[in-house]
Structure formats: structure tokens, C-alpha cells
């Protein structure tokens, strides 16, 4: 039995097809990343898998329970952490936890024990009796995740868990998620942070325009685009024209500036390294560091979604 099994899932909003015959499964204990640009169908998929929305056709099961016809049994095994920190500002952290536990049928004794344990884990126990409206963004995010874990779920939906957070919150959240993964909790992770997906996920699905463009382990996905290799180089001096100059070197397909470094995309790293050294010599520059990188998951994502990288950011092609 799979933790999640999605079969021929289609969702239409009038003339717009948000999901088109989507099929995938997630094994028990697996950490599954769901990546895609805005509007690709990620949120629609999560809303269907959590029973908030209904598919136009197709089925989805959670641990064998059909989300459409056996909704409550399916939901009892899941924890949901939405993209927005949807906590009640006028309740205290403790009241938020208890309310969430009551919705998930956690018994009275158990809910208090679990609430105390989770608030401690997320470093919020000292603030448990404070109303949430005084909490920072990171504290609210931690509380949201704690609320999603109050029923000890076997499957956790995490939508952008660490987006835009402070370092402390980020570390706590990543530690907790890593702990859950080791405990065998199945994690369905939606994130814009491709590196996070690369590090945490056993497999990722890349969704684009309502279709699954690829599903595989991150390393295997990278092997599908070996041509997208790159050289990362830094010089002792940086000038405004340097990016354009390195981009025009022979065999360089594209170049971006990453902090004080330049990343040059190529299919022929050896030739580009020679060109870079020659470029440095003619400009009287000293090469501080130079290294060759294989394709990243972000490269795979860009290739499969048809997006474009400009100036270090990823954009849709109009």
C-alpha cells in the first residue's frame, strides 16, 4: 500500500485545465518533493489530496482511503502545514495547539502532553500563554508546523515550510523535519527552494502546466541533463562589464553572477576553463577560485518547465 496514490487526476476550472491526467504514488516513509513554477498545479494537487477540493475526474487515496469517499479516515492520518502561517492571532499558542488537537480527535490527556512536547521542540513553550499576534513571522511558522504535528501524522503535507524565515526558525524547522523523516513519517514537500528539495527528498516530481514533467530521485534527474555543466569562477577584482565579457567567451552558453562569483554554463568545461584563464591573463586579473559543477536540480527544473534564468533569478518565458 502506498501513502499516496494518485490516478488519472484531472481538475478543470471552467475552460482552464489546472491538472491534466496526473499520476504518481508516494511510498510509505518516503520524502517526496513537488516542484513547479507558480500556476503549475501544485496547490490544486494539495487541495485535492487534503480533501478541500474535489477532482473533475480521477482518484486519490491516502493509505488506501479514497480522499473523496472516505475523507475523514484519510485526513486522520495526515498533518497539513499550509504555505500561509494560518494560526489564530487572538488565541494563545497553547489554545492554538489544543484547538488543532481537538479538530484531529486527540484525547484530552494526550493533547496536553503533545502540545507541551511540540511547543518545547519548537522553542515556543515559554511563550505558550501569549497571544499569537505578538509573535514574529518565524515563531508563527514554527507554531503552524507544531499544529500540523499535534495528531502525530503518518503523512505530513508541508507547503513551503521554510520560505522567508530567520536562521533560527529555519534551523529548528529543518531539524524537526529531518527527525520526522528518520522516524518514518511520509513527507509531501512543496517548495520553491530547489536546493532544499535536493537535500531532503528521496524523489521529486516536477509539475508544469498541469502535467507531471518528470518524477525521479534528484541525482537521477540530474543525469538526464549532463550537458548543463557549469564552471564557477571568482576573480580578485569585479567590474560592471565582467558578466557580459565572460558570457561572450568561447563555448559559454550562458553566464550568471552569484555573489562575487560567475557561473558559466557550458557543454565543454575544459575549453571554458582555458578561455577563463586566458581572459584573466589578458585583463590582468587573478583567479581566486575555479571549479566545475555538474547540473543541479535547478537546471533540471528550468529545462523541464521551460523557464529562463536571467541575472540569477528564474523567470517564465512570455
Amino acid at each position: 500500500m502506498h501513502a499516496i496514490e494518485v490516478s488519472h487526476l484531472t481538475k478543470k476550472f471552467g475552460a482552464l485545465t489546472a491538472l491534466n491526467d496526473v499520476n504518481f504514488s508516494v511510498d510509505v516513509g518516503e520524502t517526496f518533493g513537488f516542484l513547479g513554477p507558480n500556476g503549475a498545479g501544485k496547490t490544486t494537487t494539495i487541495r485535492i489530496l487534503t480533501g478541500i477540493s474535489y477532482p473533475t475526474s480521477g482518484t486519490a487515496t491516502i493509505f488506501g482511503h479514497d480522499i473523496g469517499s472516505d475523507t475523514i479516515a484519510a485526513r486522520l492520518s495526515m498533518g497539513i502545514v499550509s504555505e500561509t502561517s494560518n494560526v489564530y492571532d487572538d488565541l494563545t499558542a497553547w489554545q492554538n495547539m489544543i484547538f488543532s488537537a481537538e479538530l484531529y480527535h486527540v484525547g484530552r490527556v494526550e493533547r496536553e502532553k503533545k502540545a507541551a512536547e511540540l511547543l518545547t521542540t519548537f522553542d515556543l513553550y515559554e511563550r505558550r500563554n501569549d497571544k499569537v499576534h505578538g509573535f514574529s513571522k518565524g515563531m508563527k511558522r514554527r507554531l503552524t508546523i507544531a499544529m500540523g504535528l499535534v495528531n502525530s501524522p503518518r503523512l505530513l503535507f508541508l507547503d513551503e515550510p521554510t520560505s522567508g524565515l530567520d536562521v533560527q526558525s529555519n534551523l529548528i524547522i529543518r531539524d524537526v523535519i529531518t527527525g520526522l523523516i528518520h522516524e518514518g513519517v511520509t513527507v509531501f514537500l512543496t517548495t520553491h527552494n530547489i536546493e532544499e528539495a535536493n537535500l531532503m527528498c528521496d524523489r521529486v516530481a516536477i509539475v508544469n502546466r498541469g502535467h507531471i514533467a518528470a518524477i525521479d530521485a534528484p541525482e537521477r534527474l540530474k543525469k538526464t541533463i549532463q550537458s548543463a555543466q557549469s564552471i564557477v569562477v571568482s576573480f580578485d577584482r569585479v567590474s560592471a562589464r565582467q558578466l557580459e565579457e565572460v558570457r561572450s567567451l568561447p563555448m559559454v552558453n550562458d553566464a550568471i553572477k552569484e555573489g562575487d562569483k560567475f557561473r558559466l554554463y557550458t557543454e565543454d568545461p575544459a575549453t571554458v576553463i582555458e578561455s577563463v584563464m586566458e581572459y584573466a591573463r589578458t585583463r590582468n586579473l587573478r583567479v581566486i577560485s575555479i571549479s566545475t559543477l555538474g547540473p543541479s536540480l535547478e537546471d533540471v527544473f528550468i529545462k523541464l518547465t521551460g523557464l529562463q534564468r536571467t541575472g540569477g533569478a528564474i523567470h517564465a518565458i512570455d
Partner: peptide, 14 residues
């Protein structure tokens, strides 16, 4: 507006 209604809609209750 504050997305807490989704929390209620996705809870294991009818």
C-alpha cells in the same frame, strides 16, 4: 482571508 478557514475545511470532520 487569513487562510484559517482552510484549516477547518481540511480537518477530519464532516
Amino acid at each position: 482571508r487569513v487562510k484559517t478557514f482552510d484549516r477547518l475545511l481540511s480537518a477530519p470532520i464532516s
